[in-house]
């Protein structure tokens, strides 16, 4: 570990000023990802500005009925929040399927959005990686590709974004409040994360010194009929092989509106707009669901070891949609045995 300076910010503007003023500075939230990177030599900030104690630990209902989530709200607190549990089941399930209990207690909302890929080559400084060291090459291409992207990858990077929470938020039309050296701005969540293109070192569109202050979930009819399904190698503490967040507004068997987002498939949480187009206005049926999945997957480009993700996404998406349109939308699919809301539904 390389020696570094540490300060704790009292106000968001102080934190922004401190980081903006030093090119090598980094924000520290829950520390569940950055500290690992510092130990591994993946990151070497010369200044760490601790934002975990900023007064951004709120979950509020706005006058438009939206939910505003402060950047420092811990993942476990957010998952347990009554409004989240009642109105945004997809988000609750996504949070509870992430990491482990201990990590969820530490991880923050903004930090979860900004966590970096777990591509093993990115995390190992002895192997080339364009994301870690631009221009050195992508070790994953031609290497171990089992967990890598099938959508939106480039010749420079095929890594996937690891977050569960972000996938659910994407399906819930979330937006992100940002404070920077030159003021505030609001981004739709689907504009936050980038595809790798020729600059995979940039995970997001945020500029140095910009701080996420909150996430807003608007009131939408489809939010209540939403869920998240994570497919994983083991029942806990494993990143998604693929995941599906879906939200439906149903009217007498017809899909009035739909949101579908995928995890584990791309450099960013993946908004499945092609699937949504098929669903919107269609009769909710097995055939529609398959058609939606196939529409989204026509763009899939597997890299050898991850070809299984295509049928896995298809099956999972169809199963999730089937579950959401079943009699009991609170049970996302029959035999469901993941973390959930059954025991306390309100």
């Amino acid at each position: 570990m390389i020696p570094f300076d540490y300060q704790r910010a009292a106000a968001p503007a102080d934190a922004v000023a401190a980081v903006a003023g030093r090119p090598g500075a980094a924000f520290l939230g829950g520390g569940t990802n950055l500290v690992d990177h510092m130990k591994l030599g993946v990151a070497g900030p010369d200044l760490v500005v601790d934002v975990s104690e900023l007064p951004l630990n709120h979950v509020l209902e706005t006058d438009t009925g939206a939910l505003r989530i402060g950047a420092t709200v811990r993942n476990s607190d957010l998952a347990a929040h009554p409004l989240v549990r009642r109105r945004y089941p997809a988000l609750c399930r996504a949070l509870l399927s992430g990491a482990s209990g201990q990590l969820r207690n530490a991880a923050t909302t903004a930090g979860n959005l900004l966590q970096r890929t777990r591509c093993p080559y990115f995390q190992d400084t002895s192997t080339p990686c364009n994301k870690r060291e631009p221009g050195t090459g992508c070790s994953a291409i031609g290497g171990h590709t089992r967990e890598q992207a099938i959508l939106g990858a480039s010749a420079h990077c095929i890594a996937v974004h690891p977050s569960d929470m972000a996938v659910a938020m994407l399906a819930l039309d979330a937006s992100v409040g940002v404070l920077g050296p030159y003021g505030e701005r609001t981004l739709p969540l689907d504009a936050l994360h980038r595809l790798p293109g020729d600059a995979p070192e940039q995970d997001t569109v945020l500029r140095h010194g910009e701080l996420i202050t909150d996430v807003e979930l608007p009131a939408r009819r489809f939010a209540a009929r939403s869920t998240y399904r994570k497919v994983r190698d083991r029942a806990s503490y494993a990143f998604a092989l693929v995941s599906v967040a879906a939200a439906l507004d149903l009217d007498d068997g017809v899909v009035r509106d739909a949101r579908v987002a995928l995890g584990g498939v791309a450099h960013a949480p993946w908004r499945a707009t092609r699937a949504e187009e098929v669903l919107r206005g269609a009769v909710a049926s097995e055939g529609t669901f398959r058609q939606a999945a196939d529409a989204e997957l026509t763009a899939a480009r597997p890299y050898g070891g991850n070809a299984y993700k295509v049928p896995m996404v298809r099956n999972t998406l169809v199963a999730v949609l089937r579950g959401l349109t079943a009699e009991r939308p609170d049970r996302p699919y029959p035999g469901w045995h993941g973390p959930g809301l059954e025991e306390e539904s309100g």
């Binding site: 777990r118 093993p120 995390q123 190992d124 190698d233 083991r234 029942a235 806990s236 503490y237 990143f239």
Partner: peptide, 15 residues
């Protein structure tokens, strides 16, 4: 490649 316990999987309690 997967030389840590996040990526070299063994059964977790939930398994």
């Amino acid at each position: 490649v997967n030389h840590d316990l996040a990526s070299y999987h063994i059964a977790a309690h939930a398994d």
